[in-house]
Write a protein that binds this DNA or RNA. Structure first.
Lengths: 216, 216
DNA sequence: CCGGCCGTACTTACAGTGTATGTTTCAACG
DNA sequence: CGTTGAAACATACACTGTAAGTACGGCCGG
């Protein structure tokens, strides 16, 4: 492989640039033209290396799925699932465009397959039946994707949430929406930290699964 | 030209047409021009009644959220949450474009607020603290939205799943993806019905929440 | 009865999208 | 050398949301 070939582009370089662009400017800003300009190239040149924008998006998803640390085998399955889930959360937080893409398309890239296989393996080795393994995996992942999506358009950053809640109060008349009103009021006055809590739901699910496992 | 000229359009008529179009042709097919055509009108005429496409999408979401049956107050909170969740599932299934819109934007329409308020109320009256109520609601809804999104692009309809699984097997070499391979093989030979199961995860979550409630 | 008003619908136009198609360029090989 | 073939470029098409300007027709004050 000679060093000074002409091609300045490659699928990998395009993929990296696409992820960087989406990280910085959001998924909406990721157009073939904008992506091309960041690579100092014309839009159509990209098509010599990627078949379509959809294929590019698939590649982006598989790439970042590869960043998730796989669950450890052979130890405590709950700890393994916890690690996996928080790692997924971290990756999705670092790439806010990712959850939307993950849930809006079918992904069968090698990293995705490896990720799923490791998860199934951990659950199966923990003693769940095939059916339970399938259901348990789906339950956890539905929650993870649901949470990361919700987090992605959480109105403000956590520090500003109390003051933001105060401004929402006027939209929530206490007579029509009593519970939302009080909840928001409590966030505003600081007696309830309305910030999203990934761990709560995760522990609820893990506990539920453990009971199911022991109960057989 | 027919006589009853003037107000051939109205926000409600546009909203209904938009929902019908999205139901039949998918969200991608919902463009202002196509929508206008179904109403026998030009695209720009719609803007006399809706401010923007985004506003229209918000309206669509709030409309179908209104179709969800609210949780009953005063009875068994688990039963109420179950009913609510399955009703939400049914609505999202009837309008496959909905979950994507719900999670990709902030929604504060009247139906959405009523829906959330009723949910918070039920949980609060069941004895959860404000903090627990907030967390519990989020946990359930993250799961619901995650599930309905996953269901939306489930590869095939349940009847064909076994035969489809057989054709996937070749993409899942047993040495690299042993657990996915076996899971898929079991779906193919009928010893595991790989169909998605909404109830499983829901019960896991409800059980987890109940334990939390009793434990205080 | 008539003239003006004003909301509704229409027309045109613009900047942007993904990508099909055709042309140019240039390093590497026979 | 000249030839080849891939990579980059240029043009074009059918779409998108929507800003801006125009034409129409039913209502109300004179």
């Amino acid at each position: 492989m000679p060093a000074s070939r002409r091609p300045s582009l490659s699928p990998e370089r395009i993929l990296r640039a696409a992820i960087k662009l989406a990280d910085r400017q959001g998924l909406d800003a990721l157009s073939m033209r904008k992506l091309a300009t960041t690579l100092k190239v014309e839009a159509m040149s990209l098509y010599n290396h990627v078949a379509s924008k959809d294929e590019l998006l698939d590649g982006m998803v598989d790439q970042i799925i590869g960043e998730i640390t796989l669950p450890e085998r052979g130890g405590d399955w709950k700890a393994a699932m916890r690690t996996r889930a928080f790692s997924a959360l971290a990756v999705m937080t670092a790439h806010p465009w990712a959850p939307m893409l993950v849930v809006s398309r079918i992904n069968v890239g090698p990293n995705m397959l490896r990720y799923i296989d490791a998860t199934l393996g951990t659950l199966r080795e923990a003693g769940l039946s095939w059916e339970e393994t399938d259901r348990a995996w789906n339950t956890m992942d539905n929650y993870i994707y649901g949470f990361t999506l919700q987090q992605q358009n959480f109105p403000v950053n956590p520090d500003d949430y109390a003051s933001a809640a105060a401004s929402y109060l006027s939209m929530l008349p206490a007579d029509r929406y009593p519970y939302m009103h009080e909840m928001t009021a409590r966030v505003a006055d600081g007696s309830h930290d309305g910030t999203l809590d990934f761990g709560f739901g995760l522990e609820v699910i893990l506990d539920g699964l453990e009971r199911l496992r022991k109960h057989r």
